[in-house]
Design a protein around this nucleic acid. Structure first.
Length: 858
DNA sequence: AGCACGCCGACT
DNA sequence: GTCGGCGTGCTC
């Protein structure tokens, strides 16, 4: 059959608006069987070579409509993406208003982010293999004789450079310019004249790790014979051969292992290879971050009646192989994890794979242990603490079908499984599922979308579901993606939820207690010390960081380029800006008033630790915060220390609240329950409720009953009260009322539009212009502007106002908030108006960024 | 994003 | 006079 040329439509790795579309390239015949949607290729793009992803393969137009270039290179034998992920990328680009390339890039490990490396080599016709030397008079007044080749290279510098390159065949441009730093002009001229040529190769950030392996090159019988006839002189070689025979069933062995076991050198083995007895090969090894660790195998636990009915409901759906979504609302300790495990088991039995998403912070060894214990090496784990190489290897295990389960944070939702059957999202309400950088996607929405593509089941699990999910599940709107609500109101082990006491700190103050501990919490800790039980103390300080302030005049050290206070870093003992990286030493005296009373404030955990030491001499405290968990595995070490009862108190920020499960913890204290309530965030109450509920669930999970003390300055607040009663339903009822009145999600959706520009007046004018234009367009389309109106299609735009951080890197920032609801195309209109503005000449240097369904409003 | 082309200020 | 500043336009 005569087939015409094939063309690959690709998205190039150039994140710009102009290039956010497909480009067409001819597929060379040799690559034809390999190129498919999701392949990663190198293509010539203008003067450069760039990386690109194949979106589709189509027959070429005949005759071609325009000049077309060919794909230069195929970068992976197994495509890093697949057709469905490419499609998901397209959906993300629309949903989150980002370039397609950004959406595709976020799906693959950074190790594969290839960049062009430029190599210089000698053009073939200029090879100096047989330089024909001629002597000619040089141009000029004086008669000077110069050495010339047929290249016409008269300059000795040129000759030096050319022979340097010739020796190595090709030299990375970078290396060449380092070697000849002064001769850039000469090199340029040689390139111009065609003596040298440049080639560009896409090079990945990281290669595969390989290991030398030893295998028998001959059959076992043959080897045995060879062994008998072995020369007595080569005793060491004989040993090696005998060793290999002995372990023939484990071949190939690693060279290292052979060398250490027999204490022979590599040369000995090499000699055997030369004789043709053994084979030395480079085999790929997977860097396994959990290698050498033993996970205690676990068997499925018997389910309670409650668990059983939930489990059956889910697997019934799983068995249909059609997409379905469930919101599993189960109190802390209701045994959600066991349901996850057994559902996964079912999924594996169907020959499908499962993804487990957990918030980064709760991806603790305990969590990993439970999954590795049940599914062993069928599990790949991905989290931010892994090195780039480790993450790459875990990802490859998934792509190559070597594992059946992927467990990881947000980005694991893109795990490249072929037959995805199940996606589990634990702690569904966690904000870390929203990526704050472009592409600003929400893993929950991506998960549901992806499940739809695969006919897979999604389980969203939480003790405190987000209002968005809960509302969607409860109202069972006609949204086909709305999850079905499943409730598990009782604890699996039958023990009761701990008693929660609210301590009114205003009253403590009135009673003359100026300490950070209420009298009741103080007594509680003392009792635990006596009974040799453990205490977890939580300091809720969301939205604060360690800053330097003068106690005399109130001066706070701020960044000169950004409108933000500088953060104190203990390790380097300096102040740093979180946004631009600016740093300066810690001032000894106040730059404003000269006072010496200038100190750092904020972290608080240190102060709590000091206070504990003062009140309870000899108390052993494990402090867990950003300062103590920066180094690798610190998290794990600290927890182990606490688990082994080498400490009485675990003191920390947010990170102690999640998923930890210690049998001897009978007291949980929250030192400042409501510090998040005052933040300008419509989710403040929800966040506070979630945190208090989570932390309350840490106590008394086993035989010993637990007690929780919550210290608050606003003890009458409904989030504090309902959390103390473990009453999610009442909290939701009250919170939904507020959301409805104030027109916040889940009663509408939000888009945060941020503008930035170097000049404030220009910025304000442009931001206002945007707001007005969008408003006008929305009206034209018949979308109403008043949220109060009882109509479905509404778009309201608030602002512009200065952003909470009004300047970053010397660029001023303003923002608008779009509220919308109904079956309208609000996202694409908001994006379209932004694009139009960016095109206009007066708006040059203006940056506009959209955040669809923002989690952080600051 | 790069990289080229193209048109105006401070220097050998 | 030229080196080089960065505006602007394009990439199958």
């Amino acid at each position: 059959m005569e087939t015409g040329n094939l063309v690959a439509k690709v998205i190039v790795d150039v994140p710009a608006k102009d290039t956010d579309r497909t480009f067409d390239y001819l597929i060379p015949d040799s690559m034809r069987p390999w190129i498919e949607p999701g392949s990663r290729v190198a293509v010539p793009f203008g003067k450069r070579t760039v990386q690109a992803f194949v979106i589709s393969v189509v027959p070429a137009d005949d005759p071609p409509k325009y000049r077309m270039r060919a794909i230069q290179e195929l970068l992976d034998l197994v495509p890093p993406l697949s057709g469905d992920l490419v499609e998901l990328g397209k959906w993300m680009s629309e949903r989150y208003a980002c370039n397609q390339i950004m959406a595709l890039q976020v799906m693959i490990p950074t190790a594969l982010k290839g960049k062009a490396e430029r190599y210089i080599s000698i053009a073939e016709q200029h090879e100096l293999t047989h330089p024909q030397r001629t002597i000619q008079p040089n141009q000029g007044d004086e008669l000077e004789w110069a050495l010339l080749t047929d290249d016409g290279m008269s300059d000795p510098t040129e000759r030096r450079i050319v022979s340097f390159i010739q020796e190595k065949e090709q030299v990375p441009l970078q290396q060449l310019s380092r070697r000849f730093p002064e001769e850039a002009e000469v090199i340029k001229s040689l390139l111009r004249r065609g003596v040298l040529q440049e080639s560009q190769v896409i090079k990945d950030k990281l290669g595969k790790k390989t290991m030398k392996s030893v295998d028998l090159a001959i059959g076992i019988d043959e080897a045995s014979t060879a062994l008998e006839q072995f020369s007595t002189k080569a005793q060491r070689q004989r040993e090696v051969l005998a060793f290999l025979l002995e372990r023939s069933e484990f071949l190939p062995l690693s060279l290292k292992e052979v060398m250490t076991s027999l204490s022979v050198s590599a040369a000995t083995v090499k000699a055997l290879e030369d004789k043709g007895y053994v084979l030395l090969e480079d085999v790929e090894v997977f860097r396994d971050p959990y290698r050498g660790r033993h996970f205690k195998p676990t068997e499925p636990l018997p389910l309670t009646v409650e668990q059983q009915s939930v489990y059956e409901r889910i697997i019934r759906q799983l068995d249909t192989r059609e997409q379905g979504a469930y919101l599993l609302h189960g109190v802390t300790g209701s045994g959600k994890t066991e349901i996850y495990l057994q559902t996964i088991q079912r999924c594996i039995k169907q020959n499908r794979q499962a993804i487990v998403l957990v918030p980064e912070i709760s991806l603790t060894p305990q969590m990993v242990e439970r999954f590795k214990g049940r599914f062993g090496d069928q599990v790949a784990v991905m989290h931010s603490r892994l090195s780039g190489g480790e993450r790459y290897d875990e990802w490859r295990k998934i792509r190559e079908g070597r594992v059946k389960v992927a467990i990881g944070a947000r980005s694991a939702v893109f795990a490249p499984f072929r037959e995805l059957g199940l996606i589990i999202m634990d702690e569904e309400h966690e904000t870390s599922y929203k990526q704050e950088e472009t592409p600003k996607y929400h893993a929950r929405d991506v998960a549901i979308r992806r499940a739809h593509q695969h006919g897979a089941v999604v389980i969203l699990g939480s003790a405190t579901p987000s209002l968005e999910s809960y509302y969607a599940a409860r109202s069972q709107s006609n949204d086909e993606f709305a999850p079905l609500l499943l409730e598990m109101p009782t604890r699996a082990l039958g023990n009761t939820l701990p008693e929660v006491h609210i301590m009114d700190m205003r009253e403590e103050l009135r009673a003359g207690n100026r300490s950070m501990f209420s009298r009741a919490l103080h007594n509680g800790i003392a009792e635990r010390l006596e009974r040799k039980e453990q205490t977890v103390l939580l300091l809720n300080r969301r939205g604060h960081s360690t800053f330097v302030m003068c106690r005399s005049c109130g001066y706070v050290a701020g960044c000169p380029h950004c409108d933000i206070s500088l953060t104190y870093h203990q390790r380097s003992n300096n102040l740093r800006c979180h946004y631009c990286g600016y740093s300066e030493p810690v001032p000894q005296t106040c730059p404003e008033c000269g006072s010496e009373h200038i100190r750092y404030f904020g972290t608080g955990t240190q102060r709590v630790e000091e206070e504990l030491a003062k009140l309870f001499p000899g108390i052993r405290v494990v402090r867990m915060d950003v300062d103590t968990t920066t180094e690798k595995n610190a998290h794990e070490k600290l927890l182990k220390q606490f688990r082994d009862k080498k400490a009485d108190v675990l003191l920390g920020t947010q990170m102690v609240a999640k998923g930890l499960d210690f049998p001897d913890v009978t007291l949980v204290g929250v030192i400042t329950a409501d510090s998040a309530l005052n933040l300008p965030d419509f989710r403040a109450a929800e966040k506070t409720f979630q945190l208090l509920t989570q932390v309350a669930g840490r106590a008394g999970r086993h035989q010993l009953p637990g007690e929780v003390f919550v210290q608050s300055y606003t003890p009458e607040h409904y989030s504090v009260i309902h959390a103390s009663r473990h009453d999610y339903a009442s909290f939701v009822r009250e919170e939904l009322k507020h959301r409805r009145n104030l027109h916040y999600p889940p009663y509408c959706r939000l888009i945060l539009v941020t503008f930035s520009h170097e000049q404030l007046p220009v910025l304000v004018r442009l931001a206002e212009n945007y707001s007005a234009t969008l408003q006008g367009r929305a009206r034209q389309r018949g979308w109403f502007g008043n949220m109060d109106r009882l109509t479905s299609d509404v778009l309201d735009i608030l602002g512009p106002v200065a952003s909470p951080i009004s300047r970053i890197k010397n660029r001023y920032r303003f923002q608008c908030m779009i509220k919308w609801r109904g079956n309208i195309d609000a996202i694409s209109l908001a994006q379209q108006v932004a694009d139009e503005m960016a095109e206009s000449a007066q708006a040059q240097k203006l940056l506009i960024s959209l955040d669809v369904d923002p989690q952080m409003l600051m």
